[in-house]
Design a protein around this nucleic acid. Structure first.
Ligand SMILES: [Mn+2]
Ligand SMILES: [Mn+2]
Ligand SMILES: [Zn+2]
Ligand SMILES: [Zn+2]
Lengths: 134, 134
DNA sequence: GGTTGACCTGAGAATGGTTGTCAATTCAGC
DNA sequence: GCTGAATTGACAACCATTCTCAGGTCAACC
């Protein structure tokens, strides 16, 4: 029985959640902090990091990692297990799931005797809009 | 026609390659440097980073990222496109590929009009040996 | 086996994202 | 309103990784 710590609704958290709500793409903590500063919100960088981390833990956000290790966050619209297909140009993201992938996983893991399987799938491509502009 | 820079065989690179050769698991640059120091090899940390990076670029190594962004390297036994199933306990890794996954990718990306698709799949589980010990 | 020069090394400084510190502030229940 | 735990933010600390550059080393060619 872990005592769940009380969660407060602060001006900062609302501002961060709003910003995430209106973004279709994945954003870094630094990105978000810069955007908030630009729009007049004066929020500490540490608070942004803390809030993003907490929201991710609560499943409200998806996390992704840049090739050089930077963490990117985006609101998660889908409940339950799923994956993402991200546009490498504009960041537009589609949430994806499907039994075919899971079947393949079960088959492959079974073949080698691996159990208690976890997996992450990252798909990157160019979205229709960006492809049209090219 | 980019002039390929000459590659030299130095004591340091041999030591690093050897260490990688005898490891079944993914290792970080720091891990590797520590292991080399322990076995008497006195190699600069910067050299380890440079060498791993170069080998990865040449396709001799696979790279993986920890959840907190640390880069892990392992010798790659397979030529061409493939994925990995890693034991979360001992690091033992199986190289995996298959048309079923690629078919699924083609179908999904096509459905949303995404083109020029790239993807990474990370599978984590418990290998038969480690499962037996549990 | 000696010369030569591009390549390579390593100690230390610098970088940059992220987390820790802690006094001051702010929610939220009473 | 009062009160205390939760939260904030300026700043320091962390830590993996990269940069710098003076000195060392490989390999080709005599
Ligand atoms: Mn999602
Ligand atoms: Mn491989
Ligand atoms: Zn796009
Ligand atoms: Zn194992």
């Amino acid at each position: 029985m872990t005592t769940t710590p009380a969660r407060r609704v602060t001006k900062q958290r609302v501002a961060i959640a709003d910003q995430l709500e209106r973004s279709e793409a994945f954003l870094s903590a630094q990105d978000l902090h810069a955007a908030l500063s630009r729009s007049g919100e004066r929020i500490g960088l540490a608070t942004v990091y803390r809030t993003l981390s907490a929201m991710a833990t609560d499943g409200e956000l998806d996390v992704r990692r840049t090739d050089d290790g930077e963490a990117l966050y985006r609101r998660c619209d889908t409940e339950g297990h799923h994956h993402h297909m991200v546009c490498r140009t504009c960041g537009r993201t589609v949430e994806i799931g499907g039994p075919k992938l899971e079947e393949w996983l079960a088959e492959v893991s079974g073949r080698f005797g691996y159990v208690d399987i976890d997996h992450t799938v990252e798909i990157t491509g160019t979205c229709p809009e960006c492809a049209a502009k090219a």
